[in-house]
Design a protein around this nucleic acid. Structure first.
Lengths: 109, 109
DNA sequence: CACACTACTTGACAATGCAAGGTAGTGGTG
DNA sequence: CACCACTACCTTGCATTGTCAAGTAGTGTG
């Protein structure tokens, strides 16, 4: 997969996932991984950024299967930011797709 | 505009533009700029990368309005790469868009 | 000749993803 | 109990690519 395409989009995907339900980091790695390839070294720093910027909050919960899990919960500011990101992405991707279609259409003329 | 979304996509856009017609750098800045915000400091290094990787070739032509223009012409390898990039982008953007739709649909249920 | 405009180039910097490795808790096996 | 596997979290160093700002040069105009 093209690494560069992911830049910035992962933030959107992570926010989308936690906007549905609180998740812990390790879980996000596998859930986000179903959408796009990703690894721990990417997700944890991203979660720290989102937390620093108050787009999400964390709380710990014990687990019977290992160390305590740190859950991430989206904040109100996070939902606002998510809406902006979503809109920006949809507009951006559509602009690029339209341009691809335009140039491809010209091929046949 | 979200800077990060652009990563990697600019390469696709530039290749698309020169796949239609040879262009010189300064011209690409303005043509690509109609699709996404971009500035010279981004385009020229990108063109150098594409040239180093043999996805395009350059030739100089005199201009009556200033210094000689360096034109960029896509190569066969460039067209092959462009097709791959295009396919990857379409797949990637569709995957993300589908995920956005899925999560947004759930909101209403 | 100073200036504006065209055109190309470069260097320092910022953002973000990856690979690899480290720290810890829990439970099972010899 | 020693060891190992698995879960879970975190960090460091690096690569890629975009931005900003500045610089170099050629051409024509007042």
């Amino acid at each position: 997969m093209n690494t560069q395409f992911k830049k910035g989009v992962l933030e959107l995907i992570v926010l989308l996932v936690i906007s549905k339900e609180d998740k812990y980091g390790y879980q996000l790695v596998s859930e986000v991984g179903r959408i796009v390839d990703v690894n721990e070294g990417t997700i944890y720093p991203l979660l720290k950024r989102l937390t620093n910027e108050k787009y999400c909050e964390t709380y710990l919960e014990q687990s019977a299967e290992g160390p305590a899990r740190k859950y991430y919960k989206i904040t109100v500011a996070g939902r606002v930011y998510l809406d902006i990101l979503k809109r920006e992405w949809l507009e951006f991707s559509q602009t690029v797709n339209n341009f691809i279609k335009e140039t491809s259409k010209d091929d046949k003329e």
